[in-house]
C-alpha cells in the first residue's frame, strides 16, 4: 500500500493469512507517523482447546457490511478516546488451523500507556460487537458454534 493512501484508522476482513496484510501495512504506518513512540500489537490465535475439548480447526464467518461499519467505528473510537496516532484492526474469515492468527490489532501513540490501553479496549470491543461467528471442530469429530460473548 502507498503511504499516502493509509488512513489512521482502519478495519479489514481477510480470507488470507493476516500476516500478508499486517506486514504490508505496518511499515507505511510507521513511516507516516514519526511522532509515534509506542506501538502495541495484539495477535489473537487459534488455540488447541476449548472448555476441555481438543480443537482441530475452526471456521469464522462474518457479516461483512455490519462488520465493516462496526470495525471502523471501534478503531475510530479508540483513536479519539486514547489520542492515538493510529488504530487498526484486521480479522480473519474462513477456515483456520491451530496456531493461525484470527485477529490483529495495532495501536500506536507517542507514549506506551495509551497504546496498551487502546489495544485492550479494541480487542474487548471486537469480542462484544463485531459480527463474526466461530464454528469449532473437535478431535472427537463433533463441531459446534461457540459463544464467546453475549451482546451487552
Amino acid at each position: 500500500m502507498q503511504d499516502n493512501q493509509l488512513p489512521d484508522t482502519g478495519f479489514r476482513l481477510t480470507e488470507e493469512p493476516i500476516e500478508i496484510l499486517s506486514s504490508d501495512l505496518s511499515p507505511g504506518l510507521i513511516r507516516s507517523h514519526p511522532q509515534t513512540g509506542g506501538i502495541v500489537t495484539f495477535e489473537g490465535r487459534v488455540r488447541n482447546h476449548h472448555q476441555g475439548r481438543a480443537v482441530l480447526r475452526l471456521s469464522y464467518s462474518a457479516y461483512e457490511l455490519l462488520a465493516g461499519n462496526e470495525g471502523q467505528d471501534i478503531a475510530r473510537e479508540a483513536k479519539e478516546r486514547f489520542g492515538l496516532d493510529w488504530a487498526w484492526i484486521i480479522h480473519r474469515t474462513g477456515d483456520l488451523s491451530v496456531g493461525e492468527m484470527a485477529v490483529w490489532i495495532s495501536a500506536a501513540s507517542p507514549h506506551r500507556q495509551e497504546a496498551f490501553a487502546a489495544c485492550r479496549f479494541m480487542i474487548d470491543e471486537v469480542k462484544h460487537r463485531l459480527p463474526v461467528w466461530k464454528h469449532e471442530y473437535y478431535e472427537d469429530g463433533s463441531h459446534e458454534w461457540v459463544y464467546c460473548a453475549h451482546h451487552t
Binding site: 489473537g44 469464522y60 462474518a62 457479516y63 457490511l65 455490519l66 480479522h91 484470527a102 485477529v103 480487542i123 471486537v126 469480542k127 462484544h128 460487537r129 463485531l130 459480527p131 463474526v132 461467528w133 466461530k134 458454534w145 461457540v146 459463544y147 464467546c148 460473548a149 453475549h150 451482546h151
Partner: peptide, 12 residues
C-alpha cells in the same frame, strides 16, 4: 431494507 438478527458474536 436489509435486515439481520445478529446471534451472539464470537470474534477475536
Amino acid at each position: 431494507d436489509e435486515i439481520a438478527f445478529i446471534p451472539p458474536v464470537a470474534g477475536g
